[in-house]
């Protein structure tokens, strides 16, 4: 093993958010715009989550999520946690694809999602990640 690190706060492209939303039954990707919550307008990527009174909005600059659930009364916070998890998964998949890496996804018993990224023989330095000829990584 070489190193481990723990991080949070997902930075995800619009494509990634769309894919994350598609994984939640009843959720709807609303695109980029201004969206009304109870007492304010929020600008960014709007996402309507099932059971939510107001859309959650992803800030395009900070990637922070603004939601108005009135402490869970206007929307189940667990759904939002799943959205963030899926956004992390889809962002990771897109990053792996951009580098030509192979990736597999496994749902663990505790609800975590494990992604295994295979980098082939390139050792993964910048410019690497080329799949070996004649087969997948």
């Amino acid at each position: 093993m070489s190193h481990t690190v723990t991080r949070e706060g997902v930075k995800c492209s619009q494509e990634g958010w769309q894919k994350a939303v598609a994984r939640i039954s009843g959720a709807e990707y609303l695109g980029v715009g201004k969206f009304k919550q109870y007492s304010k307008l929020q600008e960014g990527i709007g996402i309507k989550l099932p059971g939510y009174q107001y859309p959650v909005v992803v800030d395009l600059v900070t990637n922070e999520i603004a939601s108005d659930t009135y402490n869970g009364n206007w929307g189940d916070l667990k759904v939002q946690e799943n959205l963030l998890q899926f956004a992390g998964v889809e962002a990771t998949k897109l990053e792996a694809a951009s580098k030509g890496y192979d990736i597999t996804e496994t749902l663990l018993d505790n609800g975590d999602i494990q992604l295994n990224v295979s980098t082939g023989n390139s050792f993964g330095v910048d410019g690497g990640g080329v799949a070996p000829a004649g087969g997948s990584l």
Binding site: Q85, D112, Q114
Partner: peptide, 13 residues
């Protein structure tokens, strides 16, 4: 070489 990324609900990785 390989990378293992585990993501929790809420997005902690």
């Amino acid at each position: 070489p390989d990378i293992k990324i585990t993501i929790k609900p809420g997005g902690k990785a």
